[in-house]
């Protein structure tokens, strides 16, 4: 099980950030993710692996601020 956006998602061996986003299904264009404090940017989503029990923070690429 991994935790993202206050939701629990079932983990599987070889799960990438792109897999997790598909599972999450909100369709938002995130710019980056923090996987247990490890920083992954969008272009690496298809290959970056997620370990079991990971805590994930998704970073939107929004303007303003």
């Amino acid at each position: 099980m991994i935790r993202v956006k206050d939701r629990h998602i079932t983990w599987h061996e070889g799960m990438t950030v792109a897999d997790m986003l598909r599972e999450l299904g909100d369709g938002f264009p995130y710019a980056a993710a923090l996987i247990n404090d490890r920083y992954v940017c969008r272009r690496d989503f298809p290959t970056a692996l997620i370990p079991d029990k990971a805590e994930i923070i998704l970073i939107p690429g929004v303007g303003g601020g």
């Binding site: 920083y39 940017c41 969008r42 923070i57 970073i59 690429g61 601020g65």
Partner: peptide
Amino acid sequence: TASAVLGMQAA
């Protein structure tokens, strides 16, 4: 809003 730092860095 400071969570935008890593988004900007990624881009």
